[in-house]
Structure formats: C-alpha cells, structure tokens
C-alpha cells in the first residue's frame, strides 16, 4: 500500500516539475556540447598555429637558395600573422624571422617584425625580451635616438635592467654622448647581481673618460 502511495506522490510531483527538470537537463547538455565544440575549435586553431610556426622554423634548415627561403618564410609568417595574430606561435615566428632578417643585413625589416611581436605579446616577460631586441635592431640600422626611446618607453625594465641600460649606453656612445653612456653603463653595473661581473660591460666603461668633476 505504502508503495502505491509513494508512486502516486511521485507522479504528482513529476506532473508539477517534470517539464522544468527536463528543460534544465536539455539546456545543460546543450551548454556542455557547445562548450566542447568551442573548445575543440580552439584546440584546432592552436594546433594549426603551431604548424605555421613549424613551417617558419622549417625554412631555417631548408637547403633552398636564400632568396627562395626568405620568400617561403615570409609566406608562412604572413599567413600565420593573418589568421592567428593572437597565438604565441605567431609572436615566436616573428621573433625568429627578425633574427633571419638581421642575418640578411636587413635591420629595418627585423625591427618591423619585432614591433609587430611587441604589439601582440601581452604577457611578461616576453615583451621585455622583444623590446630589447627591437632596440637592438634599431641600433643596427643606426637609429640611436630610437634605441633610447624604445628602451625608456613602456613599463620599467624589471630584471632586464642590466641589459636595457647596457644597450642604452651603447647607443649614447654611438651618438658621442660619452657621459650619458657612462651613466647608463654604471646603472647597468649597479643592477647586476652582487657577485657577478660583466667583463664586456667593464670593457666598455674603461674606454670612456672619467666623469667630469661636479
């Protein structure tokens, strides 16, 4: 008897709530399916971006003529930048390409790639690495003002301080501002760990005149 009553009670309950429960389940299932679909699309996009990166890397070791190689690399790179500009692999590829352009004696093109990478990369510490390189590419093309500007723009140098200030010193020296160079080198020296001694930095410092007595 009790079982009948219970069954009856359940039927009553189901009548009142059955529809909304089914509805909730359908919604939830759709949500999960949608999320998984989106997730797999994202994963595909990430995998494709990586393939793009692999093909950029691949051109480094290919035995094509340098002009042809460069063209292949540019094609893969542009494709990647176009389709997946937010992918870390696009940023990596631009960095690699910048290195290749430097080898080809084209610092302007290198700076272009690095500027693009800098605009795309958001998560530190990568932007600090790229900013330093952008400045170095500018240094190579003789744009010394630009070097100082690049190195001083953006957030502070963080742990990269020794590298930033050394390059700034190089640029100041190249512009003939030996006192500014000395200051930058000394700032680099101060930012180094206590027990480390950067021989090249000391080398550069020892070629500059002593600070003018103030």
């Amino acid at each position: 008897m009790a079982e009948d009553e219970e069954l009856e009670a359940f039927k009553q309950w189901w009548k009142r709530n059955g529809q909304s429960i089914l509805f909730a389940i359908v919604i939830a299932v759709l949500a999960v399916a949608g999320w998984q679909y989106w997730e797999s699309r994202e994963a595909n996009a990430r995998a494709e971006a990586r393939q793009g990166f692999d093909s950029v890397i691949g051109t480094l070791s290919s035995d094509q003529e340098s002009e042809e190689r460069l063209a292949t690399m540019e094609y893969s790179l542009d494709n990647l930048k176009d389709k997946y500009p937010d992918s870390p692999y696009a940023v990596f590829s631009a960095m690699i390409a910048a290195g290749v352009y430097m080898d080809e004696g084209n610092p302007e093109a290198a700076a272009g790639e690095l500027q693009w990478a800098l605009d795309q990369a958001h998560q530190q510490p990568l932007p600090r690495v790229i900013r330093l390189r952008l400045a170095r590419a500018q240094f190579a093309s003789g744009n010394y003002e630009g070097v100082v500007e690049t190195l001083q723009a953006g957030s502070e140098a963080g742990e990269f301080q020794p590298l930033y200030r050394e390059l700034e010193g190089d640029a100041q020296h190249a512009m003939g501002n030996d006192q500014a160079a000395r200051q930058a080198y000394q700032a680099a020296r101060e930012a180094l760990d206590e027990d480390s001694n950067d021989r090249l930095l000391e080398l550069k410092l020892s070629d500059l005149a002593a600070p003018e007595a103030s």
Partner: peptide, 13 residues
C-alpha cells in the same frame, strides 16, 4: 629555443 635562438648581435657592437 625561441628566446635564445632568435637573438642577434650587431656589427657595430
């Protein structure tokens, strides 16, 4: 490899 390998130096330096 990306961070280390894509570094370069300049002739001036």
């Amino acid at each position: 490899a990306v961070i280390q390998g894509s570094a370069f130096s300049t002739e001036t330096e």
